[in-house]
Computed example of a mutant assay.
Amino acid sequence: MTTPSRLIPLLEQFDFARERLTNRMAGPIMDSGDGADTKVGPITDEEYLWEPVPECWSVRRRVDGPGSRATVLVGTGEWGRDAASYPHPSPPPFTTIAWRLSHLSEMLTLRADHTAGGHALTRDDYFVSGDAAGAVAAFDAGAAAWHKALLSVDDAALDTVGLCTYPHGSDAEEPFLDIVWWVNQELLHHGAEIALLRDLYRTRSH
């Protein structure tokens, strides 16, 4: 299938942001943003779960229960991600790299399924990684699934309202092209947050 011309720049932006975040987490080389390559080690489990301020939301072992102001651990497996029913706590809790990466990977995985898969996955089906290597691999798998889903749509699909049946957003009310744009901004802003947290972790006072 020929990729619609309107989708090409958004797909290229997604692929660029995906590669940049993966390199920022996994190393050994990252794009520092000024055109110079910088060496970086792979994210460690300690860094992945680092809570730089009190009462962070993160991913936690189910036996330990949810964190402060969270009421549930979403996902499946030994670990879950802090969450709460609407209305969410205000002000919003500060979230760890683990929380942000799990949220991003889950969104990509579920939206891919609700665009070009079985249209059935829920948050309860998503496996939450308690270690950094597993989380990076889950992000890569989710990003690959979303990329593949985008390649399955034609030009008419971009204007179809509710093409994606993802249940945790405005997908049912939006043309699919707007959802593609939204996913890109999610990747861009959470990717930037994760990069900043890596910088803060590296320069923290011991």
Rank of each mutant, 00 (worst) to 15 (best):
T115L: 14
T3G: 09
E51C: 04
I43T: 01
W79A: 02
E12I: 04
D34L: 10
A36Y: 09
C56K: 00
D64L: 11
A143P: 00
G130L: 04
G80S: 11
E47H: 12
A26S: 13
R123Q: 06
I29E: 10
A83P: 02
L21P: 08
V53W: 08
S102C: 13
A156E: 05
W50V: 08
G75N: 03
C164H: 00
A192N: 08
R6N: 05
A138R: 13
W181H: 09
A84C: 12
G67R: 00
E12T: 09
S90D: 09
G33F: 10
A84Q: 13
D15S: 14
R198T: 00
V59S: 09
R198H: 03
A132L: 11
P93T: 09
V40A: 13
V128P: 00
L21N: 09
V161R: 05
W99C: 08
G27R: 05
A36H: 11
D82Q: 01
V63P: 04
D159V: 03
I97C: 10
V153Y: 03
L108N: 00
R202K: 14
M1R: 14
D154E: 01
V128L: 04
E12G: 08
T2S: 15
E19V: 09
D155R: 09
S152E: 04
V128D: 02
L7Q: 06
W182D: 07
Y166D: 07
T115I: 07
A144S: 10
C164K: 03
L150Y: 00
A70N: 00
Y126P: 00
A116Q: 05
V161S: 05
T76S: 12
E106F: 11
M1H: 13
V72K: 10
V63A: 15
H189W: 11
